[in-house]
């Protein structure tokens, strides 16, 4: 069950989507998000969905994997959908049944909100699926480099993020192991009231935390032994360089974003 978590997962490949500079991909996702939040009508939504579909096609990522990524946010999607459906006034009332009222505007909002979240999640997941976590953090670090002038510890944050991503599979495996070990001693995680269920987590969380601290401690020593001394004077194996395809992608992405913003002004 824990193995279903796809967050931060990376599917190696050698498509254009994989080869793009991570900074390009981050910026493209930003453009995409801005456009998504500006989009108003059927035309703009269709355009963005089409863009996503093309990117998915190029990247060779299975649509099933993308849909699987939606599972954890299913609840939020339903929640927003329902909220919008019932509590948006405006327009003609389609259904009136006691206190329950569904307005035209409500239906419209609900459909578009759910679509928006879906497209948002799938778009960002497409980026993490096609970008190794290390180049993602690398790209983020370069993009935010200017913030160093304001004493924001950009390098340290990026390093922390990449280590966190590196240890996700290790900690998931460890959690599985501890759960099995406690089950072997008769621990019961399934039945009982909410409080009992929360209490049943203690035998998992305590060992997990202790182990995480031990790992952190050992990792810090190992990093120091390999001459880690902060970001000062560090070089990289893979140097990021914008190529022709990055420029093209950015121009195209920028143009689509501007297009969507303009179109949405006209309510499309």
């Amino acid at each position: 069950m824990l193995k279903d978590i796809t967050l931060g997962q990376y599917f190696p490949g050698n498509t254009v989507a994989h080869r793009l500079d991570p900074r390009t991909k981050i910026l493209l996702v930003l453009f995409y998000i801005v456009a998504l939040f500006c989009a108003q009508g059927v035309v703009t939504y269709t355009l963005l969905a089409l863009c996503l579909a093309i990117c998915v096609r190029i990247s060779h990522v299975g649509i099933r994997q993308l849909v699987r990524g939606l599972k954890p946010v299913l609840f939020i999607m339903i929640f927003t959908g329902v909220l919008n459906l019932f509590f948006t006034p405006g327009g003609r009332n389609l259904v009136e049944w006691g206190v329950i009222r569904i307005s035209e505007q409500g239906l419209h909002n609900a459909v578009f909100m759910v679509l928006r979240i879906m497209l948002l999640i799938m778009g960002t997941f497409l980026m993490t699926y096609t970008t190794s976590p290390i180049s993602l953090t690398d790209g983020l670090e370069r993009l935010l480099n200017w913030m160093k002038r304001f004493h924001v510890p950009v390098h340290e944050l990026a390093m922390m993020m990449s280590i966190a991503l590196r240890f996700i599979p290790t900690l998931i495996e460890e959690t599985d192991k501890i759960m099995s070990a406690q089950k072997a001693r008769g621990a019961d995680f399934e039945s009982g009231s909410l409080i009992q269920k929360a209490k049943a987590l203690i035998p998992i969380l305590v060992p997990l935390f202790i182990s995480a601290f031990r790992r952190a401690d050992e990792l810090a020593t190992a990093m120091e032994c390999r001459c880690y001394h902060g970001g000062e004077g560090r070089t990289r194996l893979h140097v990021l360089r914008y190529e022709g395809r990055d420029i093209t992608a950015l121009c195209l992405g920028g143009a689509i974003m501007v297009g969507v913003i303009v179109m949405s002004r006209f309510g499309l």
Binding site: A184, R185, V206, P207, S211
Partner: peptide
């Protein structure tokens, strides 16, 4: 669960599953 009580399984590196405040409580789990 009754099977798990009758067939006791000790995992590899079992010390990483300890969690209680005292040795006594941990053994009693």
């Amino acid at each position: 669960r009754e099977v798990r009580f009758r067939v006791g399984l000790v995992f590899q590196y079992p010390e990483y599953q300890l969690f209680e405040e005292t040795v006594y409580k941990d053994i009693a789990f």
